[in-house]
Deep mutational scan, measured.
Amino acid sequence: SEEKKKAKERLERLGASSELARELLDRANGNAEKAERLLRKLL
């Protein structure tokens, strides 16, 4: 979806690899905010 694509791009801008961004979104069930929080914990 367009929303998921935007979320993935945002995670990548924050420093996630394409693969990591995809994994985070999967774990967050597509929830962009939750995926971002997970990423911030990792960085």
Rank of each mutant, 00 (worst) to 15 (best):
S1T: 13
S1P: 12
S1V: 13
S1N: 13
S1R: 12
S1D: 14
S1H: 13
S1W: 12
S1F: 13
S1E: 14
S1M: 13
S1L: 12
S1G: 12
S1Q: 13
E2M: 13
E2Q: 12
E2V: 11
E2R: 11
E2T: 12
E2W: 06
E2A: 12
E2D: 14
E2G: 11
E3P: 09
E3F: 04
E3H: 12
E3L: 09
E3V: 11
E3G: 11
E3I: 10
E3Q: 11
K4D: 14
K4F: 15
K4Q: 14
K4E: 14
K4T: 14
K4G: 14
K4I: 14
K5T: 12
K5H: 10
K5N: 13
K5S: 12
K5D: 13
K5C: 10
K5Y: 10
K5Q: 14
K5W: 07
K5P: 07
K6R: 13
K6L: 12
K6I: 12
K6F: 06
K6D: 10
K6G: 10
K6Y: 06
K6E: 11
K6V: 10
K6A: 12
K6T: 11
A7S: 08
A7N: 08
A7L: 11
A7V: 09
A7F: 08
A7R: 05
A7Q: 07
A7Y: 07
K8Q: 15
K8I: 15
K8Y: 15
K8T: 14
K8M: 15
K8E: 13
K8R: 15
K8N: 08
K8H: 14
K8V: 15
K8S: 11
K8F: 15
K8P: 03
E9H: 07
E9G: 07
E9P: 03
E9R: 09
E9D: 10
E9N: 08
E9C: 09
E9K: 09
E9A: 12
E9I: 09
E9T: 09
R10I: 08
R10D: 05
R10H: 10
R10F: 09
R10Y: 10
R10M: 10
R10W: 12
R10G: 06
R10P: 03
R10S: 06
L11H: 01
L11Y: 01
L11I: 04
E12R: 08
E12D: 02
E12V: 13
E12T: 09
E12G: 04
E12N: 04
E12W: 00
E12M: 15
E12F: 00
E12Q: 11
R13F: 12
R13N: 09
R13M: 13
R13D: 07
R13E: 11
R13L: 12
R13I: 08
R13K: 13
R13Y: 10
R13A: 14
R13H: 10
L14G: 03
L14S: 03
L14N: 03
L14I: 07
L14H: 04
L14T: 01
L14A: 06
L14R: 04
L14V: 04
L14E: 02
L14M: 13
L14D: 01
G15T: 03
G15F: 04
G15L: 05
G15K: 02
G15A: 03
G15H: 01
G15Y: 01
G15D: 01
G15M: 04
A16E: 01
A16H: 02
A16M: 03
A16R: 02
A16S: 03
A16V: 07
A16T: 03
S17H: 05
S17Y: 04
S17F: 04
S17A: 05
S17L: 05
S17D: 07
S17N: 07
S17T: 11
S18D: 10
S18K: 11
S18T: 08
S18F: 03
S18Y: 02
S18H: 08
S18V: 09
S18G: 08
E19I: 06
E19S: 10
E19F: 02
E19P: 03
E19M: 06
E19G: 07
E19R: 10
E19H: 11
E19N: 08
E19T: 06
E19V: 05
L20V: 07
L20Q: 09
L20A: 04
L20P: 00
L20G: 02
L20W: 02
L20N: 02
L20T: 05
L20F: 05
L20E: 05
A21E: 01
A21W: 10
A21P: 01
A21R: 01
A21Y: 05
A21H: 01
A21D: 01
R22V: 14
R22W: 12
R22M: 15
R22E: 15
R22Q: 15
R22F: 09
R22P: 01
R22T: 14
R22N: 14
R22A: 15
E23S: 08
E23H: 11
E23G: 04
E23K: 10
E23P: 00
E23M: 09
E23V: 12
E23A: 10
E23T: 09
E23F: 05
L24Y: 03
L24D: 00
L24P: 00
L24S: 01
L24H: 00
L24F: 03
L24K: 00
L24N: 00
L24T: 01
L24G: 00
L25P: 00
L25Y: 03
L25N: 00
L25D: 01
L25F: 03
L25E: 01
D26I: 09
D26Y: 06
D26G: 06
D26M: 07
D26F: 06
D26S: 08
D26P: 00
R27L: 14
R27K: 13
R27D: 05
R27T: 07
R27W: 15
R27G: 05
R27A: 12
R27E: 09
R27Y: 12
R27I: 13
R27N: 07
A28Q: 02
A28S: 10
A28V: 11
A28P: 00
A28K: 01
A28C: 14
A28N: 05
A28M: 10
A28R: 00
A28I: 02
N29C: 12
N29W: 07
N29D: 12
N29S: 09
N29V: 05
N29H: 12
N29Q: 11
N29L: 10
N29G: 14
N29F: 09
N29A: 09
N29K: 10
G30C: 06
G30K: 02
G30A: 03
G30R: 01
G30V: 01
G30W: 08
G30N: 08
G30F: 04
G30E: 03
N31C: 05
N31M: 04
N31I: 06
N31H: 06
N31K: 04
N31Y: 04
N31G: 02
N31P: 00
A32G: 08
A32F: 15
A32M: 14
A32R: 06
A32K: 04
A32V: 15
A32S: 09
A32W: 13
A32Y: 15
A32Q: 08
A32H: 06
E33S: 10
E33F: 06
E33Q: 12
E33L: 09
E33M: 09
E33K: 13
E33V: 10
E33R: 13
E33N: 09
E33T: 10
E33I: 10
K34L: 15
K34Q: 15
K34I: 15
K34N: 11
K34V: 15
K34R: 12
K34G: 09
K34H: 14
A35V: 02
A35Q: 00
A35H: 01
A35K: 01
A35I: 04
A35Y: 02
A35M: 04
A35T: 01
A35P: 00
A35D: 02
A35E: 02
A35R: 00
E36Y: 02
E36D: 04
E36H: 03
E36I: 10
E36P: 00
E36G: 03
E36M: 07
E36A: 05
E36F: 02
R37I: 11
R37C: 13
R37W: 07
R37T: 09
L38M: 14
L38I: 13
L38G: 04
L38H: 07
L38Q: 09
L38A: 12
L38T: 05
L38S: 06
L38D: 10
L38F: 03
L38N: 07
L39T: 00
L39S: 00
L39M: 03
L39G: 01
L39R: 00
L39C: 02
L39Y: 07
L39K: 00
R40W: 06
R40L: 08
R40I: 14
R40E: 15
R40S: 11
R40H: 13
R40T: 10
R40K: 14
R40N: 11
K41M: 13
K41R: 11
K41Y: 10
K41N: 14
K41F: 09
K41E: 15
K41V: 11
K41I: 14
K41H: 14
K41D: 15
K41T: 10
L42A: 07
L42K: 03
L42T: 06
L42Y: 10
L42S: 05
L42D: 04
L42R: 03
L42N: 02
L43R: 07
L43C: 13
L43P: 02
L43E: 05
L43Q: 11
L43G: 05
L43S: 05
L43M: 10
L43F: 07
L43H: 06
L43N: 06
